Computed example of a mutant assay.
Amino acid sequence: MGLKISVELTTTPKTKPAIENLSFGKYFTDHMFIMDYDVGAGWHDPRIIPYQPISLDPAAKVFHYGQTVFEGMKAYKTPEGSVLMFRPYKNLQRLNRSNARLSIPSIDEDLVMEALKQLIKVDEDWIPAEQGTSLYIRPFVIATQPTLGVSPSEQYHFIIILSPVGSYYAEGINPVSIYVESEYVRAVTGGVGNAKTGGNYAAGLKAQQEATEKGYSQVLWLDGVHRKYIEEVGSMNVFFKIGGKVITPALNGSILDGVTRDSVIRVLQHWNIEVEEKRISIDELVEAYRKGTLEEAFGTGTAAVISPIGELNWQGDKLTLNDGQTGPISAKVYDFITGMQRGTLEDPFGWILEVDPKI
């Protein structure tokens, strides 16, 4: 028999934001899920409670040693009013891989899935139904043991919060401009680049800030050893269509194994479009651009789904892709995946999970 999830409903519900005011991660629903871990007791006391601040000791290890992981997933409302999730178990499996890399105890994926379903049902009225909107789901683990010794924590919180969101990028599905980073390094093989942990994102903030000041939406990272092989964009994996073939950097231990990345590869293969995972250098990419064989580029991620790339800036040289317009592959994949997510297109893969309306 699994742990029983207790539910405490809020007595002071919030005012929901207007649809036109939705952005990414700005508003949060009325409730949250929390579960505790202690050595000897394991994970315990799973509960849904009103959304609220958490109290931590100043010596909690998460503050000092960054022992934390997180995930990002979404729930969608169909035109008929059902609630769907897209490959949620794949996110929870990746969460446990991140846990293992950060020496955090694994979670029971089935228990968390049940908690997530219940939490979504409690706050179902927060799920926006308009095109391009969704309910963003942020599960995360933080180390809470109040001691300054450099060792894995013996206490943790596992928390899930929910946020109604609009489009991740202000540009929407329109192409974004990307700055190729040549000075800073985000991750190397053997590090934590393939774990979804806060330190990866903190390491990218300086480069992102400088790119934003230059008018670019995101940073494209190169490998940390040779400083020439393409890895990923700050919040996305990346794909290129070169000479009719779709290419994405192969997972090498410092690239996040994106759920949307995997989904795009599977969809392209389903359509019999040639796709290859391989190591590709920025020099190869520039050469393909010069030859006119670099036809299209796009990023993939849970937040944006598909983000076409209209321009790459490499050492001051601006590479305009597909005349700055959304390419045909980007548009087709975006329409197909978002159609599955919203229940308007058939799911041939068995990826969609419906939240049980009887819960």
Rank of each mutant, 00 (worst) to 15 (best):
G2P: 15
K4F: 12
I5L: 09
L9H: 04
T11R: 11
K16M: 14
I19E: 02
E20Q: 14
F24A: 15
G25R: 03
G40N: 11
W43P: 06
W43G: 03
D45F: 04
I49L: 00
P50D: 09
S55Q: 11
P58H: 11
V62N: 12
F63V: 07
Y65A: 09
Q67W: 00
E71N: 03
K74G: 12
P79T: 07
P79Y: 13
P79S: 12
V83I: 15
P88G: 02
K90P: 07
L92N: 01
L92D: 06
N96Y: 01
R97Q: 14
S98Q: 05
S103V: 13
D108E: 13
V112Y: 07
L119M: 09
I120G: 08
D123E: 08
E124D: 04
W126R: 14
A129N: 12
E130Y: 07
Y136G: 01
Y136L: 08
V141N: 09
V150T: 03
S151I: 10
S153Y: 11
L162Q: 00
P164N: 06
E171M: 09
Y179M: 01
E181Q: 10
E181V: 07
G190M: 01
V192K: 12
N194Y: 13
G198P: 06
G199T: 06
Y201K: 11
K206A: 13
Q208C: 11
T212V: 12
K214I: 12
G215R: 08
L222K: 02
I230W: 13
I230Y: 07
N237M: 01
V246M: 07
I247T: 10
N252G: 09
G253N: 14
S254F: 10
L268M: 06
L268C: 05
W271Q: 06
V275P: 10
E277P: 12
V286S: 07
F298Q: 00
A304T: 10
V305W: 02
V305G: 10
S307Q: 07
L312M: 08
L321R: 00
D323T: 10
D323K: 14
D323N: 03
G327K: 03
P328V: 00
V333F: 02
Q341E: 12
Q341P: 09
V355Q: 03
D356Q: 15
